[in-house]
Computed example of a mutant assay.
Amino acid sequence: MADDFGYLNARVRARRAALVPEGFFREALALTFPDLLSALGDTPYGDALAGEDLGAVDQAVSRHLQESVGSLPAMVSGRAREVVSLLLSRADLSNIKTILRAKEHGQTAEEVRAHLMGGTLPESVINAMIEAPDAAGVAQALYLGAHPLAAALRKAIAAGGTLSEIEVDLDRAFYQALKRQVEQYDDQFLRDYVALEIDVLNLSTAFKLAQSGMGDEQPGRYFVPGGRYVDAELFARLAAGDFGALDRLAGTPLEPLAGATDLGELERRARCLLVEKARTGVYDANGPGVVTDFIKAKEWEAARIRLLARRAYYNLPAEAVEREVFCS
Rank of each mutant, 00 (worst) to 15 (best):
F189Y: 01
R221G: 09
V182W: 05
A156I: 00
L178R: 09
M214N: 13
R221K: 12
G220Y: 11
Y193L: 03
A156F: 02
L201Y: 04
Q188E: 14
Q188I: 07
F189D: 06
E167T: 11
A195P: 02
A210M: 01
G160V: 05
Q211T: 11
T205H: 07
L196V: 02
E167M: 06
V168D: 11
S204P: 09
L190V: 03
A210Y: 03
E217K: 13
G213S: 08
E217L: 13
R191L: 06
L203N: 03
D199H: 01
P225C: 05
V200D: 04
L190M: 01
R180T: 15
Y185L: 05
Q218S: 15
D169Q: 14
G213C: 06
F189T: 04
L196R: 01
L209R: 06
L196Y: 02
L209H: 04
K179T: 15
Y175V: 13
A158R: 00
I157M: 00
R221H: 12
K179M: 15
I157G: 00
S212T: 14
E217Y: 13
Q211F: 04
T162L: 05
F174P: 15
L163F: 11
G213R: 03
D192Y: 01
F207E: 01
V168F: 08
L209I: 04
R180V: 14
L170Y: 10
A210H: 06
S212R: 13
I166N: 08
L201D: 05
S204Y: 02
R154G: 04
S204A: 09
D216I: 10
K155T: 09
L153A: 03
L203D: 02
P225S: 11
V194H: 04
V194E: 02
K155I: 08
S204G: 13
R221W: 09
L196I: 01
T205P: 15
